[in-house]
Write a protein that binds this DNA or RNA. Structure first.
Lengths: 233, 233
DNA sequence: ATGCTGCTGTCATGAACTTGTCATAGCCTG
DNA sequence: CAGGCTATGACAAGTTCATGACAGCAGCAT
């Protein structure tokens, strides 16, 4: 799953630049031009990391950070602070209110992505364990391990991501084009029929424990993950 | 092995003095003039004990301690807090956030070294009991000694740290990049493939007692320490 | 200094595994 | 039954990993 990064910065040009380079690295970027918008966005969807400018038109960056740190939900999100001035005093205040890292403008995009990568890796290594369970199917996202009825089953990475996607969005039909977008990424051009093959492989793997009936073919539309088919198992 | 002590203190003169007397006692001393530098240093090399001033130019001492206590890696490092004021309230807050000892300035160097010695002994004493065991694998953290099925096996320091990390975080996949971060430190730039080689060496060592099957390769993702693979042994 | 030893990071190579594509067979709908 | 859609097996190219070899380095005793 792509990591979400929220970029809070008032200058549109800088936002664009940051967005561009982060998306190239495979992150999803949300943009906010002020603190108000930022908090609205976060209320709807908590990002994995936040990039916050020092100077914002409404609330100051440090104040915004302080507020995020107060909230249970956002407390542990890593924050990188951006500032125009490279004055030490700023850095000091930034770290004091709880920023995890600090970069002064003009920002080298390479540095930016490097720091972000490091922070995300770090926080990811110890976060709460994520496991998806539907009926007998158990997908341990941290271990990268599928077990069905307690039996470990090996999957290729594509099948793994496919199953992860299905388990996160059960019950809905997805066209081959949609699956390609979500799982392979938006800029890959692959035969739609290839999806069939991976569905086949996933089914084969699940069949080892007779759990392949949860993947339904919807003729003319695509595929659907049917959780209800698994309830009896 | 010399014990490493990190001294976080903004006044250079005091740092010098402390360094001098600690080195005379046979410790290695790292210096940081503020919290930011301190965290960078610790990211690369975890010290055996930290000496933290109450007043730092960026983050306050207690806040810095709180952060170290949150992080898995630095949680168990003994911390001595230094303060100019000898007010009881400070001491209370210092101990509250997790300092192990508390000294008020001006510090008698004799007292300082005595307390440090005591803390290190104590933490050593604790960790003397600290032994990681998974199935037949037994890692004595003090003796720096690995035994499998009662047989001692020699490991290089890197393999040792790798195994220690795995045993402390079993069941989760870690990418090569993450392993580099956590074991080599964040600012080291080493080929990712090097991780493979150390995994190989660790496996070879464990294979002497047929216990190498606990280290799983997760293609495209990294490596995982599987404790369940050892339960039958 | 000198040579020795053990450890570490890097690299080249071959092995093992994945994956996208295609051809063909099978199935469903009207 | 035809036409369109899907399932399946085979395969070659491309990735990723395991492994042995090697040079540089630090520690150590000589």
């Amino acid at each position: 799953m792509k990591k979400q990064i929220l970029c809070v910065e008032d200058e549109a040009a800088i936002r664009q630049m940051i967005r561009f380079s982060l998306e190239r690295e495979g992150y999803t970027v949300m943009e906010a031009e002020n603190a108000y918008v930022a908090r609205e966005l976060v209320a709807n969807q908590t990002p994995d990391l936040m990039l916050i400018d020092w100077m914002l038109p409404d609330i100051s960056g440090p104040e915004l950070i302080r507020r995020f740190r107060k909230d249970e939900v956002t407390r542990d999100i890593p924050i990188v602070m951006l500032t125009a001035r490279s004055e030490e005093e700023d850095m000091i205040q930034g770290l004091e209110v709880g920023a995890d890292d600090y970069l002064s403008k003009p920002v080298s995009l390479k540095t930016l992505t490097a720091r972000i990568k490091a922070l995300l890796r770090r926080s990811e290594g110890f976060s709460a364990r994520k496991v998806l369970t539907v009926g007998p199917i158990n997908l341990d996202l941290d271990a990268h391990q599928l077990t069905v009825n307690g039996q470990a089953i090996h999957l290729g990475i594509t099948e793994y991501k496919l199953l992860e996607f299905f388990m996160k969005h059960p019950g809905r039909v997805y066209s081959r084009a949609q699956l390609l977008d979500f799982i392979w990424g938006q800029n890959t051009y692959i035969e739609e029929r290839t999806v069939d093959v991976h569905i086949l492989r996933l089914r084969k793997a699940l069949k080892l424990q007779e759990a392949d009936n949860c993947i339904h073919t919807v003729r003319g539309a695509g595929y659907r993950f049917a959780e209800e088919a698994l309830n009896g198992l």
